[in-house]
Design a protein around this nucleic acid. Structure first.
Length: 245
DNA sequence: AGTCATGTTGACGA
DNA sequence: CTCGTCAACATGAC
């Protein structure tokens, strides 16, 4: 379900509940959600793949991880991780990380690292990438402290767009290459968002999950690479492996 | 039916 | 103590 753009879509689907009072709250696991009952939902914020329900003095952090799902104004048969009833409508989250924290997300999260935020600071990301040592570019892109919201699909597509192989070390990339890496991380995330919203993401994928390179028709390389051994799809013909000479 | 996947954390051992 | 590795979580598409 979730890379940053999918969470933005989730946010848009749920802003209808902002300003509404939670009439009833249930959880299959965390009885603390009772605290929401009778409280007004003040705001909804997102940070990368994190989704926040803001109340007075505290907030709920939801992370869908790999298998998380949600339903707006409908529900599944199973008890939700967080289910909220409003006077009109309901909002349910399943198999997600649920955390209730004191304060406000703005005090804890720096939106300047969120590739989809209007506070995104590309210079900051460039600087962080340049400071990395012994880091493959595939790991750099997945670093949530640098490219908050980027996930495995975006990673693969961005690397295809900038014609760079995932195992390229960031220290072997020029300033111009790092600049385009940062630019595409954001630009592609917005493309992802538009396509996903129009249910056209799959047909717009160029390299992720592909067997043949759409550009040169060579066989796509599939390899589990990097610190987290995440799947990389790339074309050794169209994407360059930058190495120190 | 079995495999795999858009993700992250924490335990464990070297 | 730090680093790297791996299990754990848990659902649905193919």
């Amino acid at each position: 379900m979730p890379e940053g753009p999918s969470i933005l879509i989730l946010k848009e689907a749920t802003t209808q509940f902002i300003g509404k009072k939670v009439v009833k709250a249930v959880s299959d696991r965390n009885p603390e959600v009772k605290r929401l009952e009778g409280k007004k939902l003040l705001d909804i914020k997102i940070y990368g793949k994190n989704y926040f329900l803001c109340f007075s003095g505290f907030y709920v952090r939801i992370h869908l991880m790999l298998f998380g799902t949600y339903r707006v104004n409908e529900h599944k048969k199973v008890k939700p991780r967080l289910g909220m009833q409003f006077a009109k409508g309901e909002l349910n989250f399943y198999t997600c990380v649920l955390e209730i924290k004191e304060g406000h997300p703005d005090d804890e999260y720096d939106y300047e690292t969120d590739v989809l935020s209007d506070q995104w600071k590309p210079r900051k990301a460039e600087k962080k990438v340049k400071e990395m040592e012994h880091t493959k570019v595939c790991d750099a892109l997945m670093d949530q402290a640098v490219f908050t919201g980027v996930g495995n699909i975006i990673k693969n597509e961005v690397l295809f767009r900038i014609k760079t192989q995932p195992e390229t070390l960031t220290e072997n990339m020029s300033a111009a290459q790092i600049k385009s890496l940062v630019k595409e991380a954001r630009d592609y995330s917005f493309d992802f968002y538009r396509w996903k919203k129009a249910f056209q993401l799959n047909k717009n994928l160029l390299i992720y999950g592909k067997k043949i390179c759409p550009r040169c028709k060579e066989t796509v390389m599939v390899k589990d690479i990097g610190r987290n051994k995440r799947r990389c799809y790339f074309c050794t013909n169209c994407q360059h492996l930058f190495v120190k000479e």
